[in-house]
Design a protein around this nucleic acid. Structure first.
Lengths: 90, 90
DNA sequence: GCGAATTTGTACGTATGTATC
DNA sequence: AGATACATACGTACAAATTCG
């Protein structure tokens, strides 16, 4: 499991005790941030492409880009057009 | 005049000597940045709403938001949901 | 060097949720 | 309660840069 969830999502039952209201792009950013800090993606490694992240996490491209932008603003990654997004070497 | 232009825009003549390739959101950010620095919008002043900026500059909401986000990243403004975007007092 | 495929960038539209006035 | 304003998330289309055969 461990998929992304948000309030705009279809829910199996409309009687929901608990619903994660955290925005999808924040959740995705957290996942990627953790993957980087845990070394799953090392320095200079390329992250999965936007298309791959879309499919793997079942979200729209805009959502993926928003998540990545967060990491960029945090100085964790750099993005190069036509190449991809890379883990910033310390 | 002084409207925004971009490469994706319809052009009166397809023989164009010079075309401003600067992205719309960058052009709009520049306009707002200048308006702030010139004092047109003073400290704690609220900027025009996203809807107003859309109409006044003839761009989509996403473009407006991207421009404003730039100013936010530059520390020039702060945005409050339901209120608006305000010029950050030094 | 050329062209196709891949990948990110820009720009648009729509719908809905949340907060404020 | 209604109107206004920002936030999230989906979609489409095309441009631009890079990579690969």
């Amino acid at each position: 499991m461990s998929g992304l969830v948000s309030y705009g999502m279809p829910v199996p039952d409309d009687h929901v005790d608990h619903l994660d209201e955290t925005p999808l792009h924040v959740q995705l950013a957290a996942i990627l941030r953790r993957a980087i800090k845990s070394g799953e993606y090392g320095p200079r490694d390329v992250l999965p492409s936007e298309s791959q992240l879309m499919q793997e996490h079942g979200v729209a491209r805009g959502t993926v880009r928003q998540a990545i932008e967060t990491l960029r603003n945090e100085g964790l990654v750099v993005t190069i057009r036509g190449r991809g997004t890379f883990v910033r070497p310390k």
